[in-house]
Amino acid sequence: MTWLMPAETASQDRIWMAFPREGQTLGETSAEREAGYAAWAHVANTIAGFQPVSIIVDPTEMTRAKGLLSSVITIHECTIDDFWMRDSGPTFVHAADGTLAAVDWVFNGWGGGDWTESGNDRDLARFIADLAGVPVVPSLLVNEGGGIHVDGEGTVLLTETVQLDPGRNPNLDKTRVAEEISRTLGTTKAIWLPRGLERDYETFGTRGHVDIIACIPSPGVILLHDQRDPSHPDHAVMQQIRTQLAGETDAQGRSFEIIDLPAPETLTDAHGPVDWSYVNHLVINDAVIACSFGEERTDAQAQEILAAAYPGRQIVGVDATELFARGGGVHCITQQQPAPRVS
């Protein structure tokens, strides 16, 4: 069977999310937890204004979820551990005949750590595939949706510190990982980035997810996180990655046009250098749900760049500071379900 993950700009049937439940990443205080619940609900309600949203809710959070979520959102009850749907949920792909299937990666809590629990998420991809009425594509690769990005034409962006992480796939090398990615996603060219942003290697980080660094809004084009302040550790990281990508070609042999997405001006928070990034946006059918950070100039600049990169789509900013305080952004908490492809 041949599978192909379409570009994120392909037509979608719905967006999947998971509602937060109490745990280490949600927050230690009542105020922090409430802010987390509100942030997830705001993203879900915003998307639901454009297209269907289905959300997985742990039994302990059903009352709260129903009170915060729009009535047009479909709620499915299921015991879960994590609520970063991009990572714990399935990755949807097309079969050769255009029908849909769901890749079931092994999710072990971003390489495992004493702060993570993933036992209840082991069957989440299959649970969602059943709700969507699509077959499962099983995989033994430990991987997360935030650790991959495709252009729908054979190219995939990966990160050495994610798929080759000893806590994820200790016995695999680049060749074997690329072969499994090719089998499940239909890619023919893997571009390996050396690492991710500095903050992503702290306790609650993913150790280098690509969806905060780079994305491909259209074939041959890369939107790239651009930390311009030399005092920030990500400045050197992104200079290295930009130089690499400038010398790469995609699966079709095209050199990339690189469009810089400047980072917000805020450099630090109470925990050190921030990893705030406008790259971590969600593309839906008629809009782009963009991260904003309460910075009038850079938020507007980023939205202008996104509008040019995604012509015909409305750019909608949502405050992502509470999301990033917990380890990710809008893209990290969502997963698109493409529409079946019509031949």
Rank of each mutant, 00 (worst) to 15 (best):
Ile55Gly: 04
Asp97Ser: 13
Lys66Pro: 04
Phe92Glu: 09
Glu77Val: 15
Thr91Lys: 01
Tyr37Lys: 10
Phe92Val: 02
Ile73Phe: 03
Thr74Gln: 12
Gln51Asp: 13
Val53Ser: 14
Ser70Gln: 04
Thr60His: 11
Ala44Asp: 10
Ile80Asn: 07
Pro90Glu: 00
Asp97Ala: 10
Leu69Ile: 01
Ile47His: 04
Ile73Gln: 08
His42Cys: 10
Ser70His: 07
Glu34Val: 14
Gln51Phe: 02
Trp40Ser: 05
Gly89Lys: 14
Ile55Val: 12
Gly36Asp: 03
Cys78Gln: 07
Asn45Phe: 00
Asp82Ser: 01
Ile75His: 09
Gln51Glu: 09
Val103Glu: 07
Met62Tyr: 01
Glu77Thr: 15
Gly36Gln: 05
Met85Leu: 12
Met62Gly: 04
Met85Pro: 05
Met62Leu: 11
Glu61Pro: 00
Ala41Arg: 04
Met85Ile: 03
His94Arg: 15
Val57Gly: 11
Ser88Phe: 06
Gln51Ser: 04
Leu100Ser: 08
Val93Ser: 02
Thr46His: 09
Ile80His: 05
Val57Trp: 08
Trp84Lys: 07
Trp40Val: 04
Thr74Phe: 03
Ile75Pro: 05
Val72Trp: 03
Thr63Gly: 07
His42Ile: 11
Ser70Phe: 02
Trp105Gly: 02
Asp58Arg: 14
Ala96Asn: 12
Ala101Pro: 05
Arg64Asn: 12
Ala96Tyr: 14
Gly89Thr: 12
Arg64Tyr: 01
His42Lys: 14
Leu69Asp: 02
Ser71Lys: 13
Lys66Trp: 06
Gly67Ser: 15
Leu69Thr: 00
